[in-house]
Design a protein around this nucleic acid. Structure first.
Lengths: 144, 144
DNA sequence: GAACAATCATTGACAAGAACAATGATTGTT
DNA sequence: AACAATCATTGTTCTTGTCAATGATTGTTC
């Protein structure tokens, strides 16, 4: 999705700005991840798996806000790329524990780097102090 | 404060926050506009038409960043709701001038009001000063 | 001015994704 | 033991965006 030059002048509503910038941010991330055969949702899963190793798919769906069926196909992709594995859950035979492979860790590292560069570009017009302020404000309204 | 480990790293990345908040913001707007039978894109068109009366569809597509074919169906909706009209362009018989009807102006006003309420909810955790700061920062990175 | 390319709105086809219900296997509960 | 609930998965439907093709008109070039 391309960016629109209408933002000058009257359309100053913050919510709308957020929406529009979110679009731009998302497509920029997707473009950056494309070279690895991933999209934003894959990356979100990788990132989550990197923090808690061994997550059930239901947990992924809940925490990331995706439909369980979406998790399935995303994991299929990650597994085919050798970035994640589904292991049997010793505690519950109907669920599976998803873990990152070493390759998954590696890719996550480089993908994180790429993502940070995307953010750099996005925030280019802002000074370091302003970036910190923006990050703080956004985090406050993100209500996790 | 002992955050969860996944709060650090990319979850705190500003670009990613923008993306997530954009998602939330967009769906909130769509929910608010649903009662009028509109979505965000319709609203964007109405808003643009309110500033320049008499816009060719191609102009809409370019300025808003939508595909021309998308404009067609969006305008069909607006026209069926009696909010906009397609008039012949005296200067070019293959293009059409799209204008807002009085009903379109009215609905835009109330829809704007609803949108502002959505934004209020979104920015609830912030003080008025902080909201102004956020709006300023967002606007700075939205103007390319 | 005639021939050709370009532009406008529109339509139709198409793939991609999200949302939702249904299923088989397993576990929890009464 | 019987029944409900949960997990991953599949399948289906519906929406969306994207793209190519079309008819009408305009611009351009020789």
């Amino acid at each position: 999705m391309n960016d629109a030059p209408w933002m000058h002048g009257l359309h100053a509503d913050t919510g709308y700005l957020l929406y529009r910038l979110g679009q731009r941010s998302g497509s920029a991330f997707n473009a950056a991840l494309e070279q690895h055969g991933l999209r934003l949702r894959h990356h979100a899963i990788l990132r989550y798996l990197a923090t808690v190793d061994g997550a059930r798919q239901r947990e992924l769906a809940d925490r990331l806000g995706y439909d369980p069926s979406a998790i399935v196909s995303l994991l299929d992709d990650l597994q085919q790329l050798g970035l994640a594995e589904r292991r049997p859950d010793p505690a519950d035979r109907r669920s599976r524990l998803v873990v990152l492979t070493p390759a998954g860790h590696d890719l996550l590292h480089t993908a994180d780097h790429d993502s940070r560069r995307v953010t750099e570009d996005l925030l280019a017009p802002l000074s370091p102090t302003e970036r910190a302020t923006l990050n703080d404000l956004l985090q406050r309204i993100s209500t996790l």
